[in-house]
Nucleic acid binder design. Structure first.
Lengths: 230, 230
DNA sequence: AAGTGGTCTAGACCACGTT
DNA sequence: ACGTGGTCTAGACCACTTC
């Protein structure tokens, strides 16, 4: 049974749904009533129900009340750590090599996303992340030098570009996409595999209040799985 | 400047970090002090700081206080909808075909994860999800009939197994993994592509309080991208 | 031992959306 | 118009962890 604590209340609400007492699509009592029933303050009940709503278990709307979701949207929270920390977290030794680092004109697809007004100077990097000396991920990165002044002074062979950016350009927002792609010439060479091998690719585009900061493609070595719980 | 509302406070805290007033690794004032400074109740400040901590921006520990994260762990929240809703959400017409549906003995790798005590009866399904009549995702699913009694009575050509499970076995937990894999014989045939083509694969294992319910592998058509914002 | 965040309470006002 | 959830307040007690 539930105590008057919000985790206990969440557990009891989940039990009622699981046991069919509250069915998908059905309305449940208002939070004032539930607070009375559970003998807790409305704020406590609110926190429990709000978190269940954020998790996609409940649908809440003012006036309409609270319902059990008909189609609970599973939400998987992926933690995207620095590649270095991801590797060290597995007990492996991290290292990285900068394969290419140049200030060059960007191809049209990149320009469109990184340099919308055409004035920015861009830095292009190829970098290989190693775990216990074995290739772990291949990084293809564009950096907007206007958004990250000072990175030209950094020793990117010592600190990875990702890590420098995290420390020096904090709190950016952006998009992230996950996909499967065949290995291209550069990645195949880096991993020592055949071109066309299926690779897991993460593409991140980060901005700092609309200003593009960096566009990065991380291609992981064959066999990589990104895992989380739901 | 911030009003005494928690979103406003969050925005102001983020601004102070972005503008370097509060640096990564540094402690920020205690929430009682900040509440005084912002002229709000401690509970309001608590909610703002707590949400920023959940987002990985701040590190909070009793007695030790609140610090700006040195390595903010980016958290990407992926919403995993029903395949039908994902397709209909793009304005396309959903359909699905059951390619195979049999109660058969499972191979060892499956048995280990779905049938640990060796007593369960398992149902095996191959299913193709279509968007505007084009193959969208290939589903390879095992279902524990002990956890989902009644699914044998369902018409899985009308309602997909996924949808039936969501409606009838609510509130399960589990693991999810994302990977890239070469197309096998079945998926290559289903999508009309060459074997070995890089496919984006999602593997979900769901349980209901330790009891395995279903193990599903969804292989998406070439070009699929799973996108979210961070 | 003491300071910090974690939580709960009882009450209040308000925004929103259904009616 | 009115019922519901969304939020804020002022205060309190407690748990954890560092000192």
């Amino acid at each position: 049974m539930s105590r008057a604590s919000y985790p206990g209340i969440k557990a009891e609400v989940l039990r009622r749904i699981r046991d069919g007492e509250w069915k998908p699509g059905a309305a449940i009592p208002a939070e004032t009533d539930l607070a009375t029933e559970f003998g807790c303050a409305r704020a406590t009940m609110n926190r429990a129900l709000r978190e269940l709503a954020e998790a996609g278990i409940l649908d809440r709307r003012r006036k309409a009340g609270t319902r059990v979701s008909r189609f609970p949207v599973r939400k998987a929270t992926l933690e995207i750590p620095l590649t270095r920390l991801e590797i060290e977290g597995q007990g492996l030794t991290y290292a990285h090599r900068v394969l290419k680092c140049r200030q060059i004109a960007a191809p049209p697809g990149i320009t469109q996303r990184m340099n919308p007004d055409g004035t920015a100077r861009l830095l292009h990097l190829f970098c290989l992340h190693l775990a216990d000396r074995l290739p772990y991920a291949f990084e293809d990165r564009w950096i907007n030098l206007d958004a990250a002044p000072g990175i030209l002074d950094a020793d990117l062979t010592t600190i990875s570009a990702n890590e420098w950016l995290v420390q020096n350009v904090p709190i950016s927002d952006g998009d992230i996409a996950f996909m499967a792609e065949p290995a291209g010439r550069d990645t195949a060479a880096a991993f020592g595999i055949a071109e066309g091998t299926a690779l897991f690719v993460v593409e991140r585009h980060t901005r700092i209040s609309r200003l593009p900061v960096t566009l990065v493609r991380l291609s992981y070595a064959p066999g990589y799985r990104m895992v989380t719980s739901i």
